[in-house]
Amino acid sequence: MAVFTSVTLEDLAPWMTQFPLGKALNIRGIASGIENSNFFIDTEQGEYVLTIFENLNFEQLPFYLKLMRHLADRGVLVPAPIANADGELCVALHGKPAAIVSKLNGSSQMEPQPVHCAEVGTMLARMHLAGRDFTIHQANLRSLDWWQITVPKVLEFLSAENRQLMQDEIAFQSAFALTPTYKALATGPVHADLFRNNVMFDGEKLTGFFDFYFAGCDTWLFDVAVTINDWCIDLASGELDMARVQAMLNAYHAVRPFTVEESQAWQAMLRAAAFRFWLSRVYDFYQPRDAEMLTPHDPTHFERILRLRISQPVPALPQA
């Protein structure tokens, strides 16, 4: 999250009259992240989160907002979008799509222990199962098609060694996506960006997942791999922490058992998850957009993780 579009309390006052939240009393920007403009807003009904969407359009947004509403209605701990007087979840502010969602309690757990990873694994499996009857389909916009388009745009910025790594990995992932193993993987709505800073905890109790604006339909295993590659590693080295890995995988498996095909695809999917964020961070670092509170992420972090997932064995998925 970041601030690309400024909003003042004076801007907000007339716009807020369409929502059942009373007057806006305060607004402050949220500095983390890089895709949308985000603010905490205090209203007469409590504290909420306002998002102005910088890249997504009015046609794309119903998927994200209705998915969040769908999951919330099924007991998954996510922010609930607030409808205006006309029942709309997304309305224009400063000429851009905007939405208000409920604010989760707690704070992000940036030094997770196995108990936190188990909580995340359980809720992630519940989220995947709850999304099975969601009727809107939208592909993950940062999956293979985007990788294939974006790789040629960033190669000139890389060292010869990293150019080779990127070209080799996009070739590997393109070929793997054509295999019967990949095609047999379970699919559905996924979060696709479930990093530590997108989950809230109150002590050891998980209070919610948020920031669903990279969500899309993809393999559930990719979602698990993205989550493992952030929650279950030593941040300095990228090495997997086996106690945290096993806690998350066992908790997920207890709710939604892994399949044989998922076990066969596991290392390739951990590589895919690392590659997706290495590529996007390289792209954001060398093709930055203006923002008041934007700090691009370090691309080398996921380069290290990708090299490790290629070169080292990974722990097996639990099996029934």
Rank of each mutant, 00 (worst) to 15 (best):
V3S: 03
F4S: 03
L12A: 01
F19D: 09
F19G: 09
P20Q: 14
L21Y: 10
L21N: 11
K23N: 11
N26F: 10
A31N: 13
N38W: 07
I41D: 04
D42W: 04
Q45E: 14
L50M: 04
N57R: 13
F58T: 09
E59Y: 12
E59Q: 13
L65H: 13
K66C: 03
D86N: 15
D86K: 15
C90N: 09
A92I: 03
A92R: 08
K103W: 01
S107D: 11
E111Y: 14
G121V: 06
M123T: 03
H128K: 05
G131N: 00
D133I: 08
V151P: 02
K153R: 15
V154C: 08
R163L: 09
D168N: 14
E169K: 09
F172H: 09
A175Q: 13
T181W: 01
D193H: 07
M200R: 09
L206C: 08
D211T: 04
F214T: 06
G216A: 11
F222E: 00
T227S: 04
I233W: 00
A236F: 07
N250L: 09
Y252A: 00
E262N: 01
A265Y: 02
L270A: 05
R271P: 04
A273W: 02
A273E: 01
R276L: 07
V282I: 15
D290R: 14
P299R: 10
F302Y: 15
L308C: 06
I310D: 01
L317S: 01
